[in-house]
Amino acid sequence: MKIKNNTIYIVLYFVMFFVHFAIWQILKIGFETTFVKYYLFLTLLFVMVLTILSIIKKIYPTYIGFAFMGLVMFKIMIMFLIMKKLNLSEVPNYKIHFIIPYLISLLLETLYAVKLINKDEVTVEAKDE
């Protein structure tokens, strides 16, 4: 059985979530509802980016990089808007607890986009020969 491309990235994302939640519980920080709301929103954005990149790959495979850059800018804009609504600044050491998961999800999205771009280059080169 072959594992799909995006399945690996989704599994790694949820491993990050469970590790972070375990650390959160060990440190007894509290604010679990804020934590869960943040991860629900971050998960929604993560899945949205992977889905849109997959759709762009099928429709316009040469524009995956541009779509990725646009999605990253959109994601940053939305995160700044939602930070106020979730009251993230009330959590002790909130910068560490909320920026690191954001950056890890961004890393996973980047690796996924690079893999899509590399696959597209291989198919384009094969067509040229």
Rank of each mutant, 00 (worst) to 15 (best):
V122K: 14
I104T: 07
I96M: 07
L45A: 05
M69S: 15
T123L: 12
I99Y: 07
L50R: 08
I52M: 11
I56C: 14
V122I: 13
T123I: 15
T43V: 08
S89M: 12
Y112K: 03
F68L: 09
M79S: 10
M48G: 14
T62W: 07
Y60P: 02
N87T: 04
V72G: 01
N118R: 12
M48I: 02
K57S: 15
K115R: 15
M77P: 03
L88T: 06
I100P: 08
M73A: 13
L116C: 05
N118Y: 12
L88E: 01
Y94C: 10
L111D: 00
L45P: 00
V72D: 04
A67F: 09
S89C: 05
I64V: 10
Y60G: 09
K84S: 12
S105V: 03
I59K: 14
L103D: 04
S89W: 09
P92K: 13
T110P: 03
A113Q: 06
L111I: 09
D120I: 02
V124L: 15
L81F: 09
L111G: 05
I82R: 05
K57H: 14
P101Y: 10
F80E: 00
K57Q: 13
L116I: 08
S89T: 15
P92V: 13
M69I: 15
Y94H: 14
N87R: 05
L53C: 12
D120K: 11
L86R: 02
V122M: 12
V49T: 07
H97S: 06
K58T: 11
P101M: 11
T123D: 10
A126I: 10
L53T: 06
V91D: 02
F46W: 04
L53H: 08
I59Y: 13
S105A: 15
F74T: 05
P61D: 06
G70C: 07
G70F: 07
I104M: 10
I100R: 09
L106V: 01
K84E: 14
I59M: 09
Y94E: 05
M79E: 08
V91E: 02
K57M: 08
V114I: 15
I100S: 13
K57A: 15
K57P: 00
L88G: 04
M77K: 01
I82A: 09
A67R: 04
Y63G: 12
M73F: 11
V124F: 15
A126L: 15
K58L: 13
Y102R: 00
I104W: 03
V47S: 03
P92F: 12
L108F: 15
I104V: 14
V72P: 04
L53V: 02
F66I: 06
M77Q: 03
E121N: 11
K75P: 04
L44N: 07
T62L: 11
Y60V: 12
I82V: 15
L45E: 04
L108C: 06
T62R: 12
V47R: 01
L108R: 04
I96H: 02
A126T: 09
I78M: 12
T110C: 10
I76W: 12
L88I: 14
E125I: 09
I96F: 08
K95H: 08
I117M: 14
V49I: 08
T62M: 08
F66K: 04
Y94R: 06
P61A: 05
I82E: 07
K115S: 15
L116K: 07
L108I: 11
L106W: 04
A67E: 03
I55W: 02
K58Q: 13
L103V: 10
I82W: 01
V124N: 14
T43N: 09
K95S: 10
I78Q: 04
I96A: 06
